[in-house]
């Protein structure tokens, strides 16, 4: 488990910030301002982020920028936690492990995954920023029984921590198991804490509040290598394909779970990266993912036929009975 003290975080940040600022602050500021302006004016098409893995150096600047930007959204649980029944209900407490950065936690919504691969006979190390994929049709949002999650028309999905009861259904239906739970916080404490709910779920909200102000998400703004780009879907997909063609690379996220608003481009096949990365709890895989909502969508179409079938059956019966009467 990678744990970094706050003190070292500050000094490292200061160091990196100093050198990066000196190198290209003017260029960065101008491009970010341009991106922010375009984000505020283009609301109809979903916004998509493009991550060029070949550029990522694994400096974790995005991780700490995320923590800094979202610190006021993090849970402050009340202790001791109320006793929950039955005993199988797990207590999940990350409040004493807030510095963990090598996996997703309620206090760390973005982490860097490490992979090694062989390209042209040469062994290379790749680092991949991982967080919520912000699916086009997010099962977490659509299947939450309380409507605690919301999807905005700019394509981001987020959890309302004031409404979430921490049942963890969003995590179970998420193909990447992204949301993480913190016990001892949220609405369930005011309802029946012993018998229903178990805290609040947390995940990347793609800095919705920054986007509302026309700013880009913190992880994008801070990246010294410009790994991430954000923009309208059609534009980003065009860029992703051009980039993949240029590096003879591969794309992940375009078709996974029926399409996501996060597109990774890598010089190495994702099947190969998936074998190399450490995955498990809080560490999402890079497998191919089928559209988890497609069965429901197909049945919804069948539901349109249901009334017609009912009418047809009634008329059929009426026709047969009137024939019998004759």
């Amino acid at each position: 488990m990678t744990v970094r003290k706050v003190t070292s975080k500050i000094s490292r940040r200061a160091f990196l910030k100093g050198s990066i600022t000196a190198a290209g602050s003017v260029v960065a500021t101008t491009s970010i301002a341009r991106a922010a302006k375009s984000l505020s004016s283009e609301k109809k098409e979903p916004l998509v982020t493009l991550l060029d893995i070949s550029k990522c150096i694994g400096c974790e600047e995005c991780v700490y920028a995320c923590q800094e930007a979202n610190a006021d959204k993090y849970p402050e649980p009340q202790k001791p936690f109320p006793k929950m029944y039955p005993s199988r209900v797990p207590v999940q407490d990350w409040s004493d492990k807030r510095d963990v950065t090598d996996r997703l936690t309620p206090y760390n919504w973005l982490f860097i995954q490490h992979a090694s691969a062989t390209v042209n006979g040469e062994e290379i190390e790749l680092t991949i920023p991982r967080r919520c994929m912000h699916c086009e049709n997010p099962p977490c949002v659509k299947l939450c029984p309380w409507g605690a999650l919301k999807q905005e028309d700019n394509g981001l999905s987020r959890i309302d921590s004031d409404i979430c009861l921490g049942g963890s259904k969003c995590k179970k239906v998420c193909p990447w198991d992204i949301p993480e739970r913190q016990t001892g916080v949220g609405l369930y404490l005011d309802l029946l804490p012993a018998f229903a709910g178990n805290g609040v779920m947390y995940k990347c909200d793609r800095c919705y509040n920054r986007l509302e102000k026309g700013e880009v998400p913190a992880c994008i703004e801070v990246c010294p290598e410009d790994v991430q780009t954000i923009g309208p879907k059609s534009e980003i997909l065009k860029k992703a394909h051009a980039l993949a063609k240029e590096m003879n690379g591969y794309i992940y996220g375009e078709h996974e779970n029926g399409g996501t608003n996060t597109i990774y481009v890598s010089p190495v096949p994702f099947e190969q990266l998936n074998k190399s990365i450490e995955n498990g709890k809080g560490k999402p895989h890079l497998n191919k993912v089928k559209n988890m909502m497609s069965d429901g969508t197909n049945l919804a179409k069948a539901m349109l036929i249901a009334p017609l079938a009912g009418v047809a059956a009634a008329f059929g019966k009426f026709y047969l009975s009137s024939k019998e009467d004759k």
Binding site: L299, M303, A306, A313, A314
Partner: peptide
């Protein structure tokens, strides 16, 4: 989720059939 949808399809068909 799927079971709920299938049961809903049956229920809607039945309700409309009985109504007509």
């Amino acid at each position: 989720h799927i079971m709920h949808y299938i049961a809903a399809i049956v229920l809607i068909t039945l309700v409309i059939y009985i109504l007509f």
